[in-house]
Write a protein that binds this DNA or RNA. Sequence first.
DNA 1: CCCTGATTCGC
DNA 2: GCGAATCAGG
Length: 215
Amino acid sequence: MSWTDERVELLKTMWAEGKSASQIAKELGSVTRNAVIGKVHRLGLSSRTGDASAAAPAAAETAAPAAAPEKAPEPAARVEPAPAPEPEPAAKPEPVAAKPAAAVPPPTSGVSIGVTPVALPGRRQIVPAGQPLPPQPSANEISPEALASVREVEKTARKLSLMELTERTCKWPIGDPATEEFWFCGLPSVAGKPYCEAHVSVAFQPMQARRDRRR
DNA sequence: CCCTGATTCGC
DNA sequence: GCGAATCAGG
């Protein structure tokens, strides 16, 4: 495929929104990030001046490709890009589940039939900061053995922050989101899944096994 | 290692 | 004009 007018327009838009060359390449398809960068330069919009308002959302997109604000009205042309508000997990009142909506809860689609996601840690409802924490995966949902083995694996977690998550890192939350003791597993994720081997095994369980364990 | 954008240069 | 290869950096 080549640089049709529409594709160029898309490129311009996305670039202005602050998306990375690789993201743009992925969305356009049939082009590499190199091609995108090359085009960007030839178009002379490399300095990314058009509009800095959307620069921040782009970062979050790496971890949560779900939905990002497409455009925000910018009153006046800003010369300096607005500094990106850095989401500090422990400082943010919001629960983890609010942001990586696509990351934390197990995917409801793309999962093979007969397998169902189990209750996850941070995901209940909106829990105000300072409130009692949502329980970690409870023992009645996950077998003691599996739980123990996961705890072991978690000792080797990479302890990534929200911003450090990529498509290939395990997005399982570990610890208390309201404190410094919070991070994401970060170990290599299983291809196509949001979690590493260990966490996939607790997140996705055969319906049969799960039913049998219920009280 | 994962990723970023910038540059070069043969096509 | 195009984009792979490469560079420089986080």
